[in-house]
Amino acid sequence: MSETTLTSAADAASPARPRLAGRGALIGGIVLLALFAVLPPAATAMGDPFLVVTATRIVIFAIAALSLDLVLGYGAMVSFGHAAFLGFGAYAVVILAAAGIDDLLLQSLAAIAGSALFALVTGAISLRTKGVYFIMITLAFGQMAYFFFVSLSAFGGDDGRTLQHRSTLFGAPLIENDVTFYYIALAVLAAAFVLLRTVVASRFGRVLRGTRDNRVRMQAIGFAPFGYQLTAYVIAGALCGLAGVLLANQTEFVSPAFMTWQRSGELIVMVVLGGMGTLTGAIAGAVGFLVLEEVLSGLTEHWHIVFGAIIVLLVLYTRGGIAGLFSRLFGGRA
């Protein structure tokens, strides 16, 4: 008995590999990011430079999906208003640009601060509810933000506004070049991936995951979930705001349509499709969703019907989403 204890204690002293940050997930994520990294030269080789523009959009939505996954997949909070943060980020660009501030970093800071504040206030109220009420109240806050920007006639109201030019970086129009912009977005995605992997494996992430799995158990050992869930909500909101800054620059146009509840729904579909609670899955989900949309809408006008059917099949037959499918095919947890 004492011998078992000794060897096990030695075991404990060596860092136990966190299951959620397992090797499979890391490899999957790195492979995805590596594929993204070689895409521009590949697109040029294939004579289809427009591919980079589409890929930029995918990368940006992958960042948004990653942020939602922290809330939905790790925090078990079904937020139906997440697109609001995309809108805040996008409007940070157009509003600051109108005030003569074109710098991407300053706009990003403003977007992060604004989104975090909105997340803090609405999250603190929403987290007083649970289950379907949480869904409803986050939806309501999302719609409030949407209608606020619809009524903002100085910035085009319902019609939105076209950007004069993309944001500047270090005073230069660096991101006017599509490939440079693509790599900047990709760098943000990679950084977000690494950051969130770190966060979910941390003490904070452990409390968040434990609360998702068994809230009462966590309370019974002395954790009050509210503060942890709210913090996750704020981190996710801030990150999604940053995605909004990039999205505005990608489309060079900003409108309230960025933050409709349908858009929030699409983000949820991306996360569920990819596999909730796996960061690699969130990226894979964004890729799967947008590629499918792109391919199908090129084939037929009635692509939504086919799209819906494919989503139903994927959700039914790939428990755990794309990430779950991969982990069953190749072993280990994706």
Binding site: V199, R203, G210
Partner: peptide
């Protein structure tokens, strides 16, 4: 916590009384 390791189940309870759990950058495990 079915999905956690046995050790992590218990370590989480230790964590609850050992300093702040608002730590984001070092792996708890």
């Amino acid at each position: 916590l079915d999905g956690f390791s046995v050790l992590e189940n218990v370590a989480t309870a230790v964590q609850a009384r050992s300093g702040s759990s608002f730590r984001f950058l070092t792996p708890a495990a």
